[in-house]
């Protein structure tokens, strides 16, 4: 039992740092760059993606033996699209302001390579409990990068974090951080720092 738990934990930990979906696998970049102009949006996008990833990995790893190999990709996409529709209606009903600022990026979770990639690489080959560990790990890995990117961009772009004003009147906001250019630059530097830390540790 102890060995099994250790194995599960290493699967779980993988997504958070060592095989981080954004930093290392470089997938799911569109929402990462597009919606992170504030910490709140980044976190919301991360959680929405996490919900879809976890539920679809559970369903797909459960029914993987019933899906014929030839049509597995279309089947995966249909299962994912169903959960995305569910998420979209849920967010629209309970968090209309977040739904408005994320706009088409919630439906675009359907084509987020992270989700389909994990189904193909993990859920379709592993039992349910392992798939849950993988999905939760990857979701945390995805969400922390999005939230951190959102915090950095919001801090420099508006002087606030999660809508809370931190820097006073004297601060002259760097509007560029909220614009597309700032998103690319910040993420580029973040991946650079990530690589640097990894090299230092080795």
């Amino acid at each position: 039992m102890a060995v099994k738990f250790k194995e599960l934990f290493s699967v779980f930990r993988n997504g958070i740092w060592k095989e981080n979906p954004i930093m290392v696998l470089v997938i799911g970049m569109c929402p990462t760059l597009a919606v992170t102009n504030s910490a709140e949006n980044g976190l919301a996008m991360g959680l929405a993606t996490a919900f879809v990833l976890i539920s679809s990995e559970i369903v797909i790893s459960t029914i993987k033996n019933f899906i014929p190999a030839n049509v597995r990709i279309p089947s995966f996409i249909l299962i994912i699209a169903t959960f995305v529709t569910f998420t979209d209606y849920f967010v629209k009903a309970f968090f209309p302001t977040i739904a408005a600022s994320l706009s088409i990026f919630i439906p675009l979770i359907v084509v987020n390579c992270l989700i389909l990639g994990r189904q193909e690489a993990f859920a379709s080959k592993n039992p349910v409990h392992k798939s849950i560990a993988d999905a939760v790990g990857m979701s945390i890995g995805f969400t922390w990068v999005l939230t951190l990117l959102g915090i950095i961009r919001e801090f420099f772009g508006m002087g606030s974090v999660f809508g809370l004003q931190i820097l006073g009147e004297w601060y002259n906001p760097m509007v560029i951080m909220l614009l597309p250019g700032g998103a690319f630059l910040t993420l580029g530097l973040m991946v650079g720092i990530y690589n640097h830390i990894n090299r230092e540790v080795e």
Binding site: P180, G188, H196
Partner: peptide
């Protein structure tokens, strides 16, 4: 440290 993905993102930013 910037080789590969990071420098590509920075160029995309510019």
């Amino acid at each position: 440290a910037l080789k590969g993905v990071p420098i590509t993102l920075i160029i995309a930013g510019i």
